[in-house]
């Protein structure tokens, strides 16, 4: 999975790519989880449904959902599978385990709308996301 870190004076961002929109969203979730330690065992499944007004706000909502599940201790996700995705709604299944030893390497407070971007690029999709840390 490829993503690159983007510089920001106070915070941190990443640019991520995917051949399709679902792949882009899955890769973005993996990029977010790269700020945590280790991988959880895929013991349990968790279905999620997220809504937005357009692709950018849907991406922010999706990543904030993943962030919430990790931060609340409910789930340290090991894998992400997007089932359906249009500009206002996505459904997905996350596999992982309740958070035990996993921790943040750098605590991410939230996913922001700052300069959020979702666009077609090089025959695939690309997004830029900034995190408040």
């Amino acid at each position: 999975m490829e993503f690159e870190l983007l510089a920001h004076t106070a915070d941190v961002g990443f640019r991520v790519r995917g051949a399709t929109l679902p792949e882009l969203f899955e890769n973005a979730a993996r990029a977010l989880m790269s700020f945590t330690t280790g991988q959880a065992a895929p013991e349990v499944r968790r279905a999620v449904e997220v809504r937005g007004e357009d692709y950018p706000s849907l991406l922010v909502a999706w990543l904030n959902e993943v962030l919430y599940l990790f931060d609340s201790g409910e789930l340290a996700p090991a894998s992400f599978h997007i089932h359906t995705l249009d500009s206002t709604r996505l459904t997905a299944t996350l596999e992982g385990s309740p958070r035990r030893g996993e921790s943040w390497r750098l605590i991410v407070k939230a996913v922001t709308y700052h300069q959020i971007e979702v666009k077609e690029a090089d025959g695939g999709w690309e997004a830029a996301v900034y995190l408040d840390v």
Partner: peptide, 8 residues
């Protein structure tokens, strides 16, 4: 006030 990004 920060001057450099975290990556820099």
């Amino acid at each position: 006030g920060r001057l450099l990004s975290r990556t820099a």
